[in-house]
Design a protein around this nucleic acid. Structure first.
Lengths: 235, 235
DNA sequence: CGACTAGTTGAGGTTGCTCAAAAATAGTGG
DNA sequence: CCACTATTTTTGAGCAACCTCAACTAGTCG
C-alpha cells in the first residue's frame, strides 16, 4: 500500500510506450518531461495496491514483480481477471474509480502517473498513444483467452491450460524451460481459474502422480522434453 | 459472408471515433476522406463475417444488428467471448490474423476499413485514436465482467446476470424495459455462458415457473416493476 | 512453544453434463 | 394453404465432477 518513491527512469516509459512495433519515428520525449509526470512506487508482497471502487487519480504501470487484478462478485467470491507482469498497466486512465482491485503477488514496483498528466502526455505524443492502443488490444485478446479457460468444463483442462499459458508468458521474458515458477498462491490460482483451492490441490497431485510434473517449492517442474512437453498432449 | 457495399456515412465513423468524452477539439475529418477509406457491408443472419485464424486485411466496425465474437477451444467447443452492438469494433487493426470468429446473429451492417488506411487515419487524427483507446479500455472492462459471469458456480446465477447485463446494455440504446429482446439463439446464450443448451432451457423454465419472467418469442418478459425488477433480488 | 497461515486429504451431496427422445418452430415446395 | 423436412427447443434419466465441510499436516513467525 505504502511505497518508496523515486523518479521513473527513461527506460521504463520508453520500453512501455515507445518500443514495439509502432510505425512512428521515435518521438521527442525527454528525461526532464518524464520526471515531471511519473514517479516510482514499491509495494511489499500480498498487499493491496489498488482497491476496486476507490477513486482513481493516477495510472500505474508495473515495472517489477507480479500483481493480480481481481473483481468481487456479489457473493464475496473473488475472481482474478488477470496477472500483470512488468510493462502491463494496472488500471485505465479513463475510469473515475478503479474497476479492479490490484494485489501484489511478489514484491512489485510500479510507475505512477497522475491521470491528467498521463492523458496530456498521450495527446501530446501520438506515438505513445499508438503504442498504448496496441498494448490494450493485446490485453483484450488475453482476456478472451482467459474466458476460454474459464469455460472449460474440467478442472484438469483449466489447470493444464493455465500452466501452459503461464509458462509461455514467462517464456517471452526468458527462455522457455521445464521449470515453471509460480509466484502466486494456490488460492490465487483457484481464484484465477474459478475453482476451489482443494480442487487445484487435488488436480496438481493427480498430475504429479501421473508423472506429468513435479511440485516444488517455487513452482512446477515439468517432466518431458522442453521442446514438446507432455503437458501439450494431455486429454 | 457476402455483402452489399456502399459508402460509409459520416455519422457512423463520426459517432464511433469522434464522439464521446474526448478532450480534443473536433478534428477535421471530411466526408471525402472517409469515403476513401471505408465502405459498408451488409450480412445476412447466422452467417460468418470473419473466421478465426484467417488473414486480416481490414478493420470492421458494426453499424447495425447484433454479432457474436467467438473462439474455439481445442475440443471443438465454442466460447462466445462477447456480443457486438452498433459502434463496437469486430477485430483489431494490429492482428495479422483474426483472433476471433465473428458471426451475425441478426442481419448486420458494418463499416469496413483497410487496415493500412485505418492505421494511417489514426496516426493522422489523434482525436480518433484517443477515442478508440477509450472504447478499447471499456471493452477490457466488459471482458472482465464476462469473466466474473463465467466463474459463477451455478447456472442460474450466470443466466440471471446475463439477462441483467444484456438488458442494461440494450437500455443504453433506448429505455430500460421489462421486455428484454434476445436476438440470439439458446445455443448462443449457452456458448456465451459456458453452459449447455439443455441447462439454459431448464433454468429459463425454472425462472418462468417461479414467476420471475415469461418466455416469449422475441425474448423475455420480466415480471415485476420496471424500476426494480425482481431479477435483481434473486438468490 | 503456541498461534497463524498455507496446503493437503477425505467423505458426502448437489449440480450440470451426457445421452436420448419428444415437442415446437421455421422453412420449403407443391 | 397444407404437408413435409429440418432445425431449434424442451423434457427426462443417470452419472461424473466439482463444491462444501471438516480434519489434518507442515511451515512460519512472534
Amino acid at each position: 500500500m505504502v511505497g518508496v518513491q523515486d523518479n521513473i527512469c527513461f527506460k521504463e516509459i520508453g520500453s512501455a510506450l515507445i518500443g514495439g512495433r509502432t510505425q512512428f519515428a521515435r518521438p521527442g520525449i525527454g528525461q526532464r518531461e518524464i520526471d515531471q509526470i511519473g514517479r516510482r512506487i514499491v509495494v511489499l508482497p500480498k498487499a493491496t495496491v489498488l482497491a476496486e471502487g476507490q477513486p482513481a487519480v493516477a495510472v500505474y504501470m508495473l515495472t517489477r514483480g507480479t500483481a493480480a487484478l481481481s473483481k468481487m462478485d456479489g457473493h464475496g467470491r473473488k475472481q482474478i481477471v488477470g496477472f500483470a507482469l512488468p510493462g502491463d498497466f494496472l488500471n485505465s486512465p479513463f475510469e473515475d474509480r478503479h474497476s479492479c482491485s490490484v494485489d501484489s503477488v511478489s514484491e512489485v514496483a510500479a510507475c505512477q502517473f497522475s491521470t491528467q498528466a498521463f492523458l496530456s502526455h498521450l495527446q501530446a505524443h501520438p506515438a505513445s498513444m499508438y503504442r498504448m492502443l496496441e498494448i490494450t488490444l493485446e490485453r483484450i485478446n488475453a482476456a478472451h483467452e482467459h474466458m476460454l479457460l474459464l469455460s472449460r468444463t474440467t478442472a484438469e483442462e483449466r489447470l493444464v491450460e493455465f500452466i501452459i499459458g503461464w509458462r509461455a508468458r514467462l517464456g517471452r521474458r526468458g527462455a522457455l524451460a521445464n521449470m515453471v515458477l509460480l509466484p502466486m498462491s494456490r488460492r490465487d490460482i483457484a481464484d484465477y481459474l474459478g475453482l476451489t483451492i482443494e480442487t487445484v490441490s487435488r488436480v496438481l497431485w493427480k498430475l504429479e502422480r501421473e508423472k506429468v510434473l513435479r511440485i516444488i517449492a517455487e513452482g512446477l517442474q515439468l517432466i518431458g522434453s522442453t521442446e514438446r512437453p507432455l503437458l501439450f498432449d494431455l486429454r
